[in-house]
Design a protein around this nucleic acid. Structure first.
Lengths: 148, 148
DNA sequence: TTTCGTGCAAAACCTTTGCAAAGTG
DNA sequence: CACTTTGCAAAGGTTTTGCACGAAA
């Protein structure tokens, strides 16, 4: 598995943004950990004293602009972020009950691209999430609402 | 094109929820208009005097429980809702600049379902959104940042 | 040294909730 | 009549912003 840290750091260095401690800590954490993570997750994990929450909000936007992150929306009112690894494009399967996140290593975006290209949009990105009830939560629900 | 109002109304009537003016207005609006719409959009469109914003928030949950609506997240911090028409499954292409929404009449969820079913999740739903820059916004951007 | 980034606190924003009054079946 | 729903106002939670100070190039 390729180490993406040098490439990611390089993209930050070559940008017009400055290389700061907060940005290094944020990027390093997301490159090394799979995620996706909420802003608050990240704040705790990199150490609350590393930088302020507001700084993470601001720098997540910076890294989004550099095309280094994906934003995920799971419908619970919180955004989650993960490192955009070009060799590991994937999607998510989220349990509606316990919020457990599984990875789906498949994508059908290519087959839908032609439908989209007719419309002349550029700089395409996509977001695909599957929701369901995981086996554990289903069993729990069955036990608490027995049918007989 | 089939009129979905009778079926939708019927599902509400047969549920344990009561049929109220606010629910009728909300459901009728979403059945007749394509959307997806934000809560505030809906509040204005059905008439702010029809019911309170809080009532729409509550009833959108009711209609979600009845499987009559889809919730869409476009990453701008606001949820949008649309009537879930079983004969018109589609996805969205959203301009990151002007938020214009186009419909994509294609879906390849079936082809990804087998990857998902191995994991034992039930009650699957999915959310697929494509983002890009629409032709109008791209032209505007080119004019304001000329290359020569 | 000049410009950009950060911490802190306040504000903005969307959404949820408590409660008394009104509506539904 | 019993129970649900609503309006209103307040609270909750996440994200954004202003500004003075500190850090990077």
């Amino acid at each position: 598995m390729k180490n993406h840290w040098p490439t990611a750091l390089d993209r930050l260095k070559k940008s017009s943004y400055k290389v700061t401690q907060a940005r290094l800590a944020l990027l390093k954490y997301l490159v090394k950990n799979h995620g996706p993570y909420t802003i608050e997750d990240i704040h705790v994990k990199i150490g609350c004293d590393t930088c302020d929450l507001a700084t993470i909000y601001r720098n997540v936007e910076v890294l989004m602009n550099l095309n280094l992150l994906n934003r995920c929306e799971f419908g619970d009112g919180v955004s989650r972020y993960e490192f955009k690894n070009p060799n590991d494009h994937h999607h998510h399967l989220v349990c509606r009950t316990c919020r457990r996140i599984e990875t789906i290593d498949a994508c059908f975006f290519d087959s839908i691209k032609k439908h989209v290209s007719k419309l002349g949009y550029s700089d395409l990105t996509h977001q695909f999430e599957v929701f369901g009830i995981c086996p554990k939560c289903r069993k729990k629900a069955q036990n608490s609402h027995p049918k007989t």
